[in-house]
Amino acid sequence: MNRLLLLITGITLFFLGCKSDDVSHEKKIHGVSLVASKDSLAITEVKEIIKVHANYVSLMPFAFMKDINHPKIIYNQEKQWFGETSVGISQHKELLDSLHIQVMLKPQLWVWNGLFTGDIVMTNEADWIALEQQYENYILDFASLASQLNIAIFCIGTELHQFVVNRPDFFKRLIKKIRTIYHGKLTYAENWDVYQEVPFWNELDYIGIDAYFPLSENKTPSLTDLKSGWEVHKEAMKNFAAKKRKQVVFTEYGYRSIDFSGKEPWKHDRSKLLANYEAQTNCLLSLYQNIWDEPWFAGGFLWKWFPQGGNHISEQNRFTIQEKPSQTVLERFFEQRNNEVMKK
């Protein structure tokens, strides 16, 4: 029996013998982060999401900045991929509605050359004011769309640490403006290492974390290694959620199918190392075992899901779980938890 077959057999045996004994059985967010489609989303593509028992999709209308020190924001352009535009979001939402899948709308900035959005800082007050106006236009446009489409969750930003800590009053004013036009749940997606520094969690409904926590320095971490790695992060989130009296949602989570995938899960370089499916599978299982059933945890959105499936993806050591053993992990875990909720 080859190693891949052993891995799939082990996943099956794990779920056959696994039942949640935690007190929290309410319906969680079983979400996937949908890569923007180049064209209209097809019903066959959405049915692939249903097969893994997901009940939420994150749609991400990207906007673009020239540099971390330049205030201009470009978005909703015809030359963008269809799924990143307001027209595309509307088409996607209509189709997802027809199949009873809810949506989080998660506008995200992308800085040219892949510079980290958490480092966006203006060099003078005039540029800060210009950035605030540009960002407000961007967010309020999509908040209005979220309201029109009756979207369940709206995320006001993603990994904007320096912007947030330098201009907290702007974000508090922005949240008030969003509340006047959008009446669903609000969150913000902050990076795993600085989420406790966000100054406006009290104004939102969920504490949003992009959950790329370091868990293990081993090449192929075991579930025991990973459980130990979760302990400090789990306790910190539990205490912070209690302090803020809000649930945590993982606005992103995921692991590459590569050696040392639990060491620095945030890394997304195009490494040419061989795929390690077992490492990815163990990391996902550890998250589901150690975090998912906690009462302070609302669920999360797996990074990332391609509408066209996994066949076109040559980098098989990257984040997607499609057509890998980890897809079985996701499918069986979500199915099991959905069944438990229906039995209550």
Rank of each mutant, 00 (worst) to 15 (best):
L149S: 01
V164E: 00
F64W: 15
L287M: 14
Q316R: 15
R256F: 09
A275P: 11
F82E: 09
I129K: 12
W266H: 07
R173M: 11
V194Q: 11
M237E: 05
T281Q: 03
F142E: 00
V46Y: 09
Y182W: 05
Q80N: 09
H161K: 14
T187D: 05
E84W: 06
E235Y: 09
I153N: 04
L273E: 14
K238T: 13
S24K: 08
L330E: 08
E190L: 12
V194K: 10
K72S: 15
V111L: 12
G10D: 06
L96C: 09
S314H: 12
L131Q: 03
N166M: 13
S261F: 04
Q308P: 03
K344L: 05
K246T: 13
V23C: 01
L34K: 06
Y75G: 00
F260I: 07
A241M: 04
I139M: 07
K263S: 08
Q134L: 09
K227S: 15
P107F: 06
K219D: 08
V248I: 14
F154H: 09
K344R: 12
Y135E: 04
Y206I: 01
H25T: 14
P168E: 05
D225N: 03
W303A: 01
L274K: 10
A242N: 12
N191Q: 06
A275T: 15
P307R: 15
H70Y: 13
H312D: 15
L95K: 13
S24L: 07
L273R: 14
K66V: 15
P168F: 07
I156D: 03
A42D: 09
V198R: 00
G229R: 02
F297K: 01
E48S: 15
F319D: 02
G83Q: 00
I73Y: 01
R173A: 09
M342F: 11
K176A: 10
N202R: 13
K176M: 10
I156R: 00
Y182S: 02
P295T: 02
T320Q: 11
